[in-house]
C-alpha cells in the first residue's frame, strides 16, 4: 500500500473533506454536502466515517474503531486494519487511550474527554428522509426550520402505540435549530450526544454529507411535554460484569430460549471485569484476555 498517500486519500480530497468538516463545526447539526469519494470498501459500510477519519488523522493519533460497541466485529477489524496499513497510526481497544474513535451504532460507555474526537458512520443522514424522500423538499424544510412533519410523525406514534416508536436513530434538535439524525445509535446513547467534552463528527459517504457537534453543544432528543424522552435499555444487568447502567446485547445461549445480557461495549465490560466486577454468569479473573 506504499503507493497511497498518508491516510489513503489524496491531498486535494482531504482538503475538500476538511473544508466540509469546518463548515459542519461552524453550523452544528447542518448537513454539509461533500464530494464523497469511492473508497476501497463498499458504500454503506462506513465510507463516510472512513473519509472523515482519514481527513482528521495525524501520525500521532491513537485510533479505536468499534461496530455495535465492539472492537472485534469484522467490519471494525477491517476498518482499523485499513488505517494501520495506510496511515501507520497506533491503534487501541481502550476508549481511554484513544484520541480518535470511529464508531458504528454506539457511543462508548466510558465518558469521552476533550482530547478525543468521535467519528460516526452514518447510513442516512437526513432525519426527515423517511417522512419525505425528496432531497429538494427536505433541504427546504431545514432552511425554513419547518419540522412540522417530524412532530406529526412522533405524535402519530403516541396515538397508535402510547409512546414514540423510535428505538434507534432517534432524532435530536441541535442548539434549538437543526433537527439531526444521530446515526443509528440506540436512543439509550442519545443523552451522551449533548454537552460532550469531545468533538463529534458524522460522515455519510454514499449520501455525501458531513455534519458535526462541537464539544459542549446542546442536543435535545425530540419529545412532547406529556411524553418526555426516555433513554431506555434492557431491564437487566450485564451477565458478565454486573454493570446495571450500560447498553446490553441480548445473546441466545441455548435451544430452549435461554438468553443472557452482556455489555455491547466490549472494552468497558472487559475493564470492569479486570477490575474485579463479576456478573451472574461471569467467572472471576478467568475469561478476560
Amino acid at each position: 500500500m506504499n503507493d497511497y498517500t498518508f491516510a489513503y486519500l489524496d491531498e486535494q480530497t482531504k482538503r475538500m473533506i476538511r473544508r466540509a468538516i469546518l463548515k459542519g463545526v461552524a453550523i452544528p447539526g447542518y448537513q454539509v454536502p461533500f464530494a464523497s469519494r469511492e473508497m476501497p470498501m463498499p458504500y454503506g459500510w462506513g465510507t463516510g466515517g472512513v473519509q472523515v477519519t482519514a481527513a482528521c488523522l495525524t501520525p500521532e493519533d491513537v485510533l479505536k474503531v468499534i461496530d455495535q460497541g465492539a472492537d472485534d466485529t469484522t467490519n471494525a477489524v477491517s476498518i482499523r486494519k485499513f488505517f494501520q496499513r495506510t496511515a501507520g497510526v497506533a491503534v487501541t481497544e481502550a476508549t481511554v487511550e484513544a484520541s480518535l474513535i470511529q464508531t458504528r451504532h454506539r457511543i462508548p460507555e466510558a465518558p469521552l474527554t476533550e482530547a478525543q474526537i468521535l467519528v460516526y458512520q452514518v447510513p442516512i443522514p437526513e432525519p426527515l428522509r423517511f417522512l419525505e424522500p425528496r432531497e429538494v423538499e427536505t433541504r427546504r424544510m431545514h432552511a425554513l426550520e419547518d419540522y412540522g412533519l417530524m412532530h406529526v410523525k412522533l405524535y402519530e406514534d403516541i396515538a397508535r402505540h402510547g409512546e414514540i416508536a423510535t428505538a434507534y436513530a432517534y432524532p435530536v434538535k441541535v442548539e434549538g435549530r437543526y433537527v439531526m439524525d444521530p446515526s443509528p445509535i440506540p436512543k439509550f446513547d442519545n443523552p451522551k450526544l449533548s454537552d460532550s467534552p469531545a468533538l463529534q463528527l458524522f460522515g455519510a459517504g454514499r449520501e455525501q454529507r458531513i455534519y458535526a457537534l462541537p464539544p459542549y453543544t446542546r442536543v435535545v432528543s425530540l419529545d412532547f411535554d406529556d411524553h418526555p424522552f426516555v433513554a431506555s435499555k434492557a431491564d437487566h444487568a450485564c451477565d458478565l460484569c454486573g454493570a446495571g447502567d450500560t447498553y446490553l446485547d441480548e445473546v441466545i445461549i441455548d435451544d430452549a430460549g435461554g438468553r443472557m445480557f452482556v455489555c455491547s461495549d466490549t472494552d468497558h465490560c472487559g475493564s470492569r471485569r479486570r477490575a474485579g466486577h463479576v456478573g451472574r454468569l461471569g467467572v472471576p479473573g478467568k475469561e478476560v484476555a
Partner: peptide, 17 residues
C-alpha cells in the same frame, strides 16, 4: 449495492433497541 448489502453487517444494537 453497497447500501443494499450493508444490511448483512451486524445490526444487533439497533435490533436490540
Amino acid at each position: 449495492t453497497g447500501f443494499l448489502e450493508h444490511i448483512k453487517l451486524p445490526h444487533y444494537v439497533d435490533f436490540q433497541s
